[in-house]
């Protein structure tokens, strides 16, 4: 049978090159050589690393949730970050106690305990207290009585009610929005007494340090006083030309006006520091629905979900940052593939 009679495929198979003996010897030598221990493949690593990372993220979220949901008695204190020159603020939110939504502060002792945890700026520092209370009462009669009693409490403690907005719609229920001002030293007592008017649904207390502001304003006032005194002394100089005197009078008038402004502002600061503001909302059961209460597990879950969301955000951020690199890597891969095709297409 001649070559012409055979098909191309048969010819190619028949005359296929065989590996030379030298190559066989080389490969045989390789086969007997010790094989180094291999690290796991990338696919296997990915298969392990990905679920491990997910499990770690969930575990971290659960641990965070468990730590965050520790026994805090429903009180969440969030101190604001301190900044140079900025007033210090501390806040306290009182959620309904574990005994059920809206546990009433029935006794004065309980009241003291309730407000005892309230944060305060230390010692004799000037601070502004801002409180808000939401109280639920049984019906319209109780609402009326509680509103009256709230204003009486403020008055009895040396304060006053700035505004009272009393609403009792025809459909039943009703609400009263009361803005109270009480002396700062009596704010805890006031809150305790106001809490006894009904069932406390929510309570917020924030204390803002005004000492820095007060100190700045005082320094400015002292400086203005010194300037005014100097200007007045200069004006009494008989040797001073009239034109100069006119200029000095203008500056004196400006300084006096600035002094009046600063003094007024400092009065406001002092007033703010010595008088606490209490925003009180009293409503009937119809008007104020009890706030949903989370148990320990619920709090933990809530916190864990929040933490997971944070982790997700971080992952998303990382993805956004890395995506251009991934795109570049993809383009390089594509370019290399194209160049390979060109290379192999070259005869």
């Amino acid at each position: 049978m001649s070559a012409n009679d055979l098909s191309v495929e048969t010819l190619l198979r028949t005359h296929a090159p065989n590996a030379p003996e030298s190559l066989r010897a080389r490969v045989l030598a390789l086969e007997t050589a010790p094989v180094l221990r291999q690290s796991p493949s990338r696919r296997r690593l990915a298969l392990v690393a990905l679920p491990a990372a997910c499990a770690l993220a969930v575990a971290a979220a659960l641990v965070n949730g468990a730590l965050d949901s520790g026994d805090k008695g429903g009180v969440v204190a969030q101190p604001a970050p301190l900044q140079t020159g900025a007033p210090r603020t501390t806040e306290l939110q009182k959620a309904p106690s574990a005994g059920g939504a809206g546990k009433a502060f029935a006794s004065p002792g309980a009241d003291s305990a309730a407000v005892g945890a309230a944060p305060s700026v230390r010692g004799s520092r000037l601070a502004h207290t801002d409180a808000s209370l939401q109280i639920r009462v049984a019906d319209s009669d109780a609402l009326s009585a509680a509103t009256t009693r709230a204003t009486q409490i403020a008055t009895a403690l040396g304060g006053y009610s700035k505004s009272v907005d009393y609403r009792t719609p025809t459909g039943g229920g009703g609400e009263a929005y009361i803005e109270l001002r009480v002396p700062a030293q009596n704010v805890k007592v006031a809150i305790a007494r106001l809490a006894s008017l009904g069932t406390v649904v929510s309570q917020t207390l924030s204390v803002t340090d005004l000492q820095d502001r007060f100190r700045t304003q005082s320094a400015q006032i002292a400086q203005l006083h010194r300037r005014i005194a100097a200007l007045q002394a200069a004006l009494h100089d008989p040797a001073l030309p009239e034109a100069q005197k006119v200029l000095l009078r203008i500056r004196l008038a400006e300084s006096k006006r600035a002094l009046a402004q600063r003094t007024s502002a400092r009065k406001g600061t002092v007033s703010s520091g010595t008088t606490a503001r209490i925003s009180l909302v009293i409503g009937t059961k119809k008007a104020i629905a009890p706030v949903g209460h989370r148990g320990a597990a619920g709090r933990m879950l809530h916190s864990a979900v929040g933490f997971l969301a944070l982790e997700g955000m971080i992952a998303l951020y990382a993805l956004i940052v890395l995506s251009p690199l991934a795109l570049a890597a993809g383009l390089i891969w594509l370019w290399r593939r194209r160049s390979l095709d060109r290379l192999l297409a070259t005869s």
Binding site: L11, H15, A16, N18
Partner: peptide
Amino acid sequence: EEFGDDLPGAL
């Protein structure tokens, strides 16, 4: 180089 062992020259 030759691709095969004694492969016809045309191939």
